[in-house]
């Protein structure tokens, strides 16, 4: 609880300073603002507590169990499911997909009825979740086969640059953003534990050089997939 309060304090200070001293305006709806901030702090506290208590240890022990079992197929199946499952449930992605649907409806890009907006935001969520699943599989394969990460990232960058030239203009900003949105609080600890767990269980791998990098793929591939989605739809 205190950790969450301390983590959120700089934001509250920044917003308070701007509201009171730069804009020189009182806070509107102060009661609902305060209760909202309280809910965010409480929610984050429960979330992190639950992650450390439940998801984090089980994710870590499973990474070691798969490394000992030595079945590449099941490891990759688990990696895909983990990437897909954690992303579909991501609150930050849900929030941004809904905002994207609202803006798209206002711009006349899709129908402004609730059904059209829901199908747009769900489509976006599933495209991003699919790409994260594939990204974790590619990242785990890299750790197993010792592929050079910097070459893979560069190839990804070149792909993004080429696809940007062909994708419709409305999708570009959303596509670039979806890379960052995927890798949130629920995904990062699980995926980091998976990578470092694997790199430390496999002989000849260095956790520093090989354990990190899964999140890098999880932030790059969604850009490519959403750009592709924009080109097809």
């Amino acid at each position: 609880m205190m950790g969450s309060v301390r983590d959120l304090a700089p934001i509250i200070i920044v917003i308070g300073f701007f509201q009171l001293f730069v804009l020189q305006q009182p806070l509107e709806n102060i009661a609902s603002l305060i209760s909202g901030v309280f809910f965010v702090i409480l929610g984050l506290t429960f979330f992190i507590y639950g992650l450390e208590m439940g998801l984090f240890p089980i994710g870590e022990s499973m990474a070691h169990a798969f490394a000992q079992k030595g079945s590449v197929f099941w490891l990759l199946a688990f990696s895909f499911a983990l990437g897909f499952g954690t992303t579909v449930a991501e609150p930050a992605l849900i929030a941004v997909a809904d905002e994207a649907a609202k803006v798209a409806a206002r711009a006349g890009h899709i129908g402004s009825d609730i059904a059209a907006m829901n199908s747009y935001s769900t489509g976006l969520r599933f495209t991003v979740a699919l790409s994260v699943g594939v990204a974790i599989v590619v990242g785990v394969l890299r750790i197993l086969l010792n592929w050079p990460i910097h070459l893979m990232i560069m190839i990804g960058y070149v792909l993004v640059i080429i696809m940007t030239g062909f994708a419709p203009e409305e999708i570009i900003g959303i596509a670039y953003d979806s890379g960052g949105v995927t890798t949130s609080t629920i995904t990062v600890p699980l995926v980091t534990a998976l990578g470092i767990g694997l790199a430390s269980s496999i002989a000849g791998r260095n956790p520093m050089l090989d354990g990190f990098g899964l999140i890098a793929f999880a932030s790059l591939l969604p850009i490519i997939f959403v750009l592709g989605y924009g080109m097809i739809v």
Partner: peptide, 30 residues
Amino acid sequence: VLIGMFYVLLGITLFLLGLEQALFPMGRMM
């Protein structure tokens, strides 16, 4: 582990509730 998962569920719910009530409107307002 099960209790931890329930906390995750509760945490996400409260987080989304607070987000819609405070952070999103506050950011947009600023």
